[in-house]
């Protein structure tokens, strides 16, 4: 498979970073609602969203979670990743048309357990949209 990193545990170091950008589209939100079954009107109903403090439809928080999955599964460490756990805090909404930057940084590595911890930040321009920690095992 092309464009997928392939780092072994020995090739990973604390401080290693990777990031990518993604623009959220209306199709993303519709598809995520279909796949997950989360049809909450805050994501799908413009009239309802306009009546809330958000004023417009917002992306599902776990769509950002899906981008964390892409980060570890494709870039850091990539191919040999076994995703073990993820915590995620949603700080600010992401709207259709927003471009988010997903950045991961290795903050702990256990050679014996073959586990790395990755601090993840998802920024919407300069504003923090979400942050959390992923634990992955390197196969």
């Amino acid at each position: 498979m092309k464009n997928i990193a392939d780092k072994s545990i020995d090739q990973m170091s604390i401080g290693d970073k990777s990031s990518f950008k993604r623009t959220v589209t209306n199709e993303d939100i519709i598809e995520f609602a279909r796949i997950s079954g989360d049809i909450n009107p805050l994501h799908l109903d413009a009239k309802y969203a306009a009546s809330t403090k958000f004023k417009k439809r917002i992306a599902h928080g776990m769509f950002l979670g899906a981008l964390c999955s892409r980060l570890v599964g494709v870039y850091l460490p990539g191919r040999r990743c076994l995703y073990l756990s993820q915590d995620l805090v949603f700080k600010n909404p992401v709207y259709i048309g927003d471009t988010v930057t997903v950045t991961g940084r290795v903050k702990h590595k256990s050679n014996a357990a073959r586990i790395i911890e990755i601090a993840i930040e998802i920024k919407n321009k300069k504003k923090l949209a979400a942050y959390g920690t992923a634990k992955v095992q390197i196969l």
Partner: peptide, 21 residues
């Protein structure tokens, strides 16, 4: 158990070997 080992390493700033684990 591997999460436990990883957390001990982080908290006490040590490294286990594979044999020790």
């Amino acid at each position: 158990y591997l999460f436990f080992i990883s957390e001990l390493e982080k908290e006490f700033d040590i490294s286990f070997t594979m044999d020790e684990v």
